[in-house]
Structure formats: C-alpha cells, structure tokens
Design a protein around this nucleic acid. Structure first.
Length: 113
DNA sequence: ACTCAGGCGCTAC
DNA sequence: AGTAGCGCCTGAG
C-alpha cells in the first residue's frame, strides 16, 4: 500500500468541527491520530483547495489566535468567517478557547461548561 | 510579557 | 540535492 493519503485524516477531523466553534492545530493533529504533528495540520490547510468543504478557518493556534500574519489578507478573511459563524474575538484578536473551543464528545459524560 | 530550545513533517528556493 | 523556513506545540528561563 502506498499508504493512504495522508491529509484525509486531518480533513476528516476539521470537517467535524461544528459551526461557531474552533479547534487548535495540535488538537486536530491529536484527533487525527497524529499527535505532535500539529505543523502538518497547518500545511494540510494551506494545501486545501477552495470549495473542499473543509472549514479551515475553524482551525487556529493554541493561543487562540489566527496564525496568519495580522496584516495579511488571510488573517482578515479567517477572522471574518469565524465572526460570521458566531465566534467572538477578544482584545488582541484572540478567541476564548474556553468558550468557542471545540469540545470533541467523548464517551464520558458530556459536562460542557 | 518574551526568548530560547527541542520535536515533527512538509514546502520552496 | 541540501538548506532554510513554515498557518505549530510545549516547556523552561
């Protein structure tokens, strides 16, 4: 087997992120079965074609901030998309992961907030 | 608050 | 074909 594709696992996880919620690169990598490969998640998002149906905007860094350069257009686009989905940015352009952080459902009791 | 260092895999020149 | 730089993370100073 030439090995399975690669990014599919990451895309699958990102696709599972509900609207109005955000996930971190490390979290996606972990859920995709690639702990520690957070960087690859960023590349997967960058290599993602338009109209792929993968909400790449819902993926941000562990600081709750957009990883793109603050002065870059991608930054503004991602932020606008997230705000459009109901995600609120705090001072400094940071999202409260405690509130908007995607909490993947585990078998344990879903004690969310 | 910031810098430095280690780990990990990929992309671009 | 080798080297730096990245949509990163974490920990320590």
């Amino acid at each position: 087997m030439t090995g399975e594709g690669g990014y599919e696992a990451i895309y699958a996880v990102v696709r599972r992120v509900p609207r109005g919620r955000v996930a971190t690169y490390g979290q996606v990598a972990l859920l995709a079965g690639r702990p520690g490969r957070a960087r690859q998640v960023g590349y997967a998002m960058h290599a993602l074609p338009e109209g792929s149906g993968v909400p790449w905007q819902r993926v941000i860094n562990a600081s709750g901030r957009i990883s793109f350069h603050p002065d870059s257009m991608e930054h503004a686009v991602q932020r606008a998309l997230l705000e459009s989905e109901g995600v609120a940015f705090g001072p400094g352009g940071a999202v409260s992961l405690e509130r908007f952080g995607w909490k993947p459902r585990t078998k344990a009791g879903g004690r969310r907030r």
